[in-house]
């Protein structure tokens, strides 16, 4: 949407409606991730069930946004900023839908991961990782609301912190598994949960790139830190851990 309204006010309304839907979807996604992690940390199976049910709402919302966007393209033949707005909405909706899926997948693992009581420090790390990812998601959606792209740099850089935290958790979980084979089942589930949270951060970064494109018409430069270093982590069994 530019500064000046269109001749047909209905067109403006449709575009506005689209952004409102994205915001509502973002709110749902934030809530889901927060609840999924809370249910994991508190081993709350009922809350996990609810998260799994909520995912359906996000799926419906994404379909509706897609449909609305297609209708706008067909009806109004948008150009320039309007076209970017519509395409941006489609892309952000699909990212948010994935975020919801990842939250659901964390919720699914709650029962298996918390069967045996895990050390508190493990959950503290996971909680910290989730807090980073949620802050990232919130900041990104705030940028979408305010269109203040000058703050985008710091948002994208935070992805690096999430990756570093994930690598550290990965290493820690491996240590627990080597200490005691009984830890392998829950720790593997937790490893997937950590990976899911890390992926949520990546989706948030995707969204911020889309927002930048929608607001400016230019792509963000491709210098984002894409990698965590967990693929390089190895641990040789030492005599200490075996004996």
């Amino acid at each position: 949407m530019g500064d000046r309204p269109h001749i047909f006010r209905a067109y403006d309304d449709e575009l506005k409606n689209l952004t409102w839907r994205i915001a509502a979807m973002g709110g749902q996604a934030e809530r889901m991730v927060d609840r999924a992690v809370t249910s994991l940390v508190n081993s709350d199976a009922a809350l996990a069930q609810q998260v799994m049910r909520d995912d359906a709402m996000l799926d419906t919302a994404q379909r509706e946004i897609d449909e609305k966007a297609i209708v706008i393209i067909a009806r109004r033949q948008p150009v320039a900023a309007d076209l970017r707005e519509v395409i941006g909405a489609i892309r952000i909706a699909s990212d948010l839908e994935r975020v919801g899926d990842l939250g659901k997948s964390i919720a699914k693992r709650v029962v298996a991961a918390t069967q045996v009581r895990q050390p508190v420090s493990l959950f503290r790390g996971l909680r910290g990782l989730a807090e980073l990812a949620l802050t990232q998601l919130k900041d990104v959606l705030d940028v979408y609301a305010s269109r203040s792209v000058e703050n985008i740099g710091s948002v994208r850089d935070r992805d690096g912190a999430i990756d570093a935290m994930y690598t550290s958790l990965f290493r820690e979980l491996l240590t627990y598994m080597m200490e005691d084979p009984r830890n392998i089942t829950p720790c593997t589930h937790l490893l997937f949960c950590a990976k899911n949270i890390e992926r949520i951060g990546d989706h948030a970064t995707n969204i911020v790139e889309t927002v930048y494109y929608v607001a400016t018409g230019e792509q963000m430069p491709l210098d984002r830190p894409k990698d965590d270093k967990s693929h390089r982590v190895t641990m040789a069994p030492t005599t200490e851990t075996i004996g």
Binding site: T19, W20, A23, A24, G27, E30, R31, D142, A145
Partner: peptide
């Protein structure tokens, strides 16, 4: 709530389902 510019839609700022 940090920077709030005039004209910013509140539906975009407060995204929690109950606020919506």
């Amino acid at each position: 709530f940090g920077p709030l510019q005039e004209g910013m839609p509140m539906l975009l700022k407060y995204r929690a389902p109950e606020m919506q």
